[in-house]
Design a protein around this nucleic acid. Structure first.
Lengths: 232, 232
DNA sequence: TTGCATTTCAAACGCTTGTATGAAACTATC
DNA sequence: GATAGTTTCATACAAGCGTTTGAAATGCAA
């Protein structure tokens, strides 16, 4: 995102959003630990004092960044969930629910359009490094996940709830770790595990999660549906 | 000056190990980001300059900590693997291999004897936060995991290798994330997911991993073996 | 004891961090 | 064009960090 001299006259929150975008990208790329305010303002092309002028403090900048970005990610997931439930008349297939849960983040962090959603990568960082200003807000994520647990309960009414929670937990675990440590898997497999075919990865994680939830019996459709899905 | 008369005469690396132990515990509890050398020496009861005297620098302290602790963890895992392969005449059951992979770390991080193995919790921190001095050494972990991949290949000779890598990756992902974010699962399930019954958690992760590797068919023994295992 | 090497200590160094300041530059209304 | 209100800027500040220093304390051999 480069600015030319011509647009020096934006609605005036020009500097604010420049800081937010620069911070998002830098935190996503390098983590919270070794990104300073001076790095951020340099990348944003603004003055050091602008951060405290517009946000009050570094922590408030991070908090605002986290709030806006997590709302965006959650909205994306919920949109897919609602679409799946609408298509099924209020009850979505379990694999579609899981797809809505892990798909947006995986697509945002892996694959070619990484550039587009630094938001997803920032969210992964936030969930990894757990810096104080974020830890205080994070409880909202639980409420968000509860909606998926409820959808799963509707989809698999007979199942023990504890099993559903573990299934949801494992699905997120596989997605999360695949993003965090894709490099290790690549090295370990000497490149034979393709980390660029994101739709295939999503299907793989969904399939294992469905297997974990259904115990292998029944549910004859999930395991091998490898069609590329580009919802939303 | 009030050391016991008794311990005044240790081999002399008294200060070294005090620093290592304090650093291990603090890093495991609070992460690398907000633990300073002053915190460490305060917890160890030694002088600030002792760190640089005995280790050269903070980074070298962390590196030494990581090397010794990862050797310990890897040894524990390999012992269980070898025992399983010996019992099977050179070829271990896939579930025993996976148990050897995830068991030691899970037992060390969750459960009642957390205190004992700060080493496991430190290793989790190290794999999460990825601080420079550790990142340089970390390649050795790949070699270590390759031994498990080889054992899996021996155990399931027919399987596509790519599938084995993904299965290993997912097993580690579930174990890892369960340790990292046990709090979220507890909150989400409102306590109904028991994070204290470590053997049950291990069996659950092993079962899902086996399911992921075998695709649900065959392999009729793995899913429900809930005997408490206390190897080593 | 004396002498020498090792280890500990309090204090300070230089550097980087987030934050605060006050003047300059800008924008808009009269 | 002068005025008042925002926003930007260079600069300074206090605090915390890892590291260094030189002297004091300690251990050990003669």
């Amino acid at each position: 995102m480069q600015y030319d001299a011509a647009q020096a006259k934006m609605p005036s929150d020009h500097t604010r959003t420049a800081i937010l975008n620069a911070a998002e990208r830098l935190y996503a790329d390098r983590g919270f630990a070794d990104v300073t305010l001076r790095d951020i303002v340099a990348a944003a092309g603004v003055n050091l004092a602008a951060v405290n002028y517009h946000f009050g403090s570094k922590d408030e900048l991070i908090a605002e960044l986290f709030v806006t970005r997590s709302l965006a990610t959650n909205r994306e997931r919920l949109n897919e969930l609602k679409a799946a439930e609408a298509a099924g008349g209020g009850r979505a297939d379990i694999d579609d629910i899981l797809r809505a849960l892990v798909g947006p983040t995986l697509r945002g962090c892996l694959g070619p359009d990484r550039e587009r959603s630094a938001a997803a990568r920032f969210m992964i960082r936030a969930s990894i490094e757990s810096v104080p200003p974020i830890r205080r807000i994070k409880n909202r994520e639980i409420d968000h996940l509860r909606k998926f647990a409820a959808a799963m309960r509707r989809s698999l009414p007979g199942r023990d709830q504890v099993e559903l929670y573990w299934g949801l937990h494992f699905a997120l675990a596989m997605a999360h770790q695949t993003i965090r440590d894709s490099e290790r898997l690549t090295k370990l497999s000497e490149g034979s595990c393709d980390l660029n075919d994101v739709p295939a990865i999503i299907e793989r994680i969904v399939a294992v999660s469905v297997l974990a939830l259904t115990g292998g019996e029944a549910q004859h459709k999930a395991p091998a549906r490898l069609a590329a899905r580009d919802a939303r």
